[in-house]
Computed example of a mutant assay.
Amino acid sequence: MFVKPVQSPLRNTPPHTHTHTHCPLGPHLTIKSTIKTMALCLGQVFSKDKTFRPRKRFEPGTQRFELYKKAQASLKSGLDLRKVVQLPDGENINDWIAVHVVDFFNRINLIYGTVSEFCTERTCPIMSGGLRYEYRWQDGDDYKKPTKLPALKYMNLLMDWIETNINNEDIFPTRVGVPFPKNFQQVCKKILSRLFRVFVHVYIHHFDSICSMGAEAHINTCYKHYYYFISEFSLIEHSELEPLRAMTEKICN
């Protein structure tokens, strides 16, 4: 499964650079038991009753926990996802965004975890999305300039950066009466735009593995939920979504 390294901050990562470097699909799954195990892990993304717990959870009894339960109940009710993402009457928009950012982090982190075994330095030497899009890493410390990295290394650093942010009380306050910082939505926009890159890489380079697990419907549902949410609150620039534009038009319209 997906194991994250030592935490490292990220600053000023460019949205994408054009490249002609090809990142081939990972190898097909050949061992039935491996497929079943990974399919089970992916199923756990969408069920809080399983033994594999998310990295970040909401404390019972808090307003954000109640919002989380409300959002999950709406998802399970079969309501139109476009309506599910709408801000409930009387709720604070920043609380609603915070709940969804954490939930998407948990789900997308696990989605990538199911294919990370097949996302190696050999199969994916560069973090990319097809022939046109390449994502480079910069953190101001170990990586002073935008740097080409294998997809797995990039993902590790990315997930670490996100987890550091959502666990930072100055950005995602959990204490009653503590306000969100003025730049809260800007931070969330950066997190969500970077999580989109995970979808890009998984869909373009590892979708054969996802299909082999029979999990494409689950990932499509997660992506649609994510897409409707960011669209509802204008949280990502349209140019960022270009790598999956054709697919998005097909499954989200």
Results as ranks from 00 to 15, higher is better:
Val6Met: 11
Pro9Gly: 07
Thr13Leu: 15
His16Asn: 00
His18Ile: 10
Leu29Ser: 05
Lys36Ile: 06
Val45Arg: 03
Ser47Leu: 15
Ser47Ala: 05
Thr51Ile: 14
Thr62Arg: 01
Phe65Val: 00
Tyr68Ser: 01
Ala73Phe: 03
Ser74Trp: 02
Leu75His: 00
Lys76His: 08
Lys76Phe: 00
Ser77Glu: 05
Arg82Trp: 01
Lys83Pro: 04
Val85Met: 00
Pro88Tyr: 04
Asn92Arg: 10
Ile97Val: 15
Asn106Asp: 11
Asn106Gln: 06
Arg107Ile: 06
Leu110Glu: 11
Thr114Gln: 03
Thr114Asp: 02
Cys119Lys: 05
Thr120Phe: 06
Cys124Trp: 10
Pro125Asn: 06
Leu131Arg: 08
Arg136Ala: 07
Asp141Thr: 10
Thr147Gly: 05
Thr147Val: 07
Ala151Leu: 14
Asn156Ser: 08
Asn156Thr: 05
Met159Asn: 12
Met159Trp: 14
Asp160His: 05
Trp161Met: 09
Ile162Ala: 14
Glu163Ala: 12
Glu163Cys: 12
Thr164Lys: 08
Ile166Cys: 05
Asn167Leu: 13
Glu169Arg: 09
Phe172Val: 11
Phe180Ala: 05
Gln185Cys: 07
Gln186Lys: 05
Ile191Arg: 02
Phe196Met: 13
His201Gly: 04
His201Lys: 07
His206Phe: 14
Ile210Pro: 04
His218Phe: 14
Lys224Asp: 03
Phe229Met: 03
Phe233Tyr: 14
Leu235Gln: 06
Ile236Cys: 15
Glu237Leu: 10
Glu240Trp: 05
Leu241Lys: 06
Glu242Arg: 03
Leu244Asp: 09
Glu249Arg: 11
Asn253Cys: 12
